[in-house]
């Protein structure tokens, strides 16, 4: 049985129950004019897999993550997340496209906010932050952090709950390449150290090849799954431009035909 099974027959954008976006389009009439963003997206993902979802910006990748996260239940289809081996409900960590740290709470408080009741007072958040090179930020407010630091904290917040499923929505976008590479290494390290499934959304094929065990290419309007590729490269090969370019060509060419 698959651990995470995604079957989205169709997802349309209609009026939402809240938010400014919903208010702007005025409701009733908009539901008829709504367009489908996702169609026939069927994926099955095993526990512990590192899956990259690759596709052009605005093709519906974020929408898909929100469906998996349960933020949006308004779609045709079914998404099933099985319990973990310890027979408890799977925990989901979500790293959003913007760091989405609460600016009125310190870094430490931001982490504590999402922690489980049984974790409080254990100091795991302090330990994790220092493991991630954020020791001195514990009492800082997010407004005082650089973007790179904020993204690191956002990753720490997702990891502190020890997620079984880690959803990441272009988490390293608009960072310079060296900072992004650093964070990718950090992420790979944590993924190897713990058993967790990662669903990593990106529009950058090089990033996808560096990280993913499996790359799912999405494109079109409404978006569908174009390709579903396993990446069989060693960590060294993932850094080698030759291998990376070859695989990119393979993925992207196929995409066009």
């Amino acid at each position: 049985m698959n651990w995470l099974s995604i079957e989205v027959a169709r997802k349309r954008y209609g009026p939402k129950s809240y938010g400014q976006g919903a208010r702007a389009d005025g409701g009733g009439a908009a539901s008829e004019a709504s367009t489908a963003v996702l169609e026939n997206v069927v994926l099955s993902i095993e526990y512990g897999e590192f899956v990259c979802i690759l596709g052009p910006s605005g093709c519906g990748k974020t929408t898909l993550l929100n469906l998996v996260a349960g933020l949006d239940k308004n779609f045709e289809g079914n998404i099933a997340l099985r319990a973990t081996r310890e027979q408890r409900e799977a925990r989901i960590g979500y790293v959003f496209q913007s760091p989405a740290l609460l600016p009125w709470r310190t870094v430490g408080e931001n982490l504590k906010l999402v922690m489980r009741p049984d974790q409080t007072g254990s100091g795991v958040e302090r330990e994790l932050l220092s493991q991630m090179g954020l020791k001195d930020c514990y009492d800082a407010y997010p407004g005082d952090l650089s973007l790179g630091m904020s993204r690191r904290v956002a990753l720490a917040r997702a990891l502190v709950i020890e997620p079984d499923l880690l959803l990441m929505d272009e988490p390293f976008v608009s960072l310079d390449e060296s900072k992004a590479a650093e964070l990718r290494q950090l992420l790979t390290r944590f993924w190897k150290a713990r058993t967790m499934t990662v669903l990593f959304v990106t529009h950058d094929s090089r990033e996808a090849i560096q990280l993913g065990q499996r790359i799912i290419v999405m494109a079109g309007s409404p978006a569908t799954v174009q390709r579903d590729e396993m990446v069989i490269l060693t960590p060294e090969q993932r850094e080698d431009p030759l291998y990376v370019e070859a695989l990119r060509k393979q993925i992207l060419n196929h995409n066009r035909s």
């Binding site: 809240y18 938010g19 400014q20 976006g21 208010r23 929100n66 996260a69 349960g70 933020l71 989901i92 960590g93 979500y94 959003f96 913007s98 989405a100 609460l102 009125w104 709470r105 408080e109 906010l113 999402v114 709950i161 959803l167």
Partner: peptide
């Protein structure tokens, strides 16, 4: 009306509960 969507998404996806959402996300 001016509440930020991203913070609500945060509260919902991490399932921090109504009380914590009110106190740490909405009221500030």
């Amino acid at each position: 009306r001016a509440l930020e969507r991203q913070y609500m998404d945060l509260a919902l996806s991490y399932r921090i509960g109504v009380w914590k959402t009110l106190r740490h996300v909405i009221l500030p």
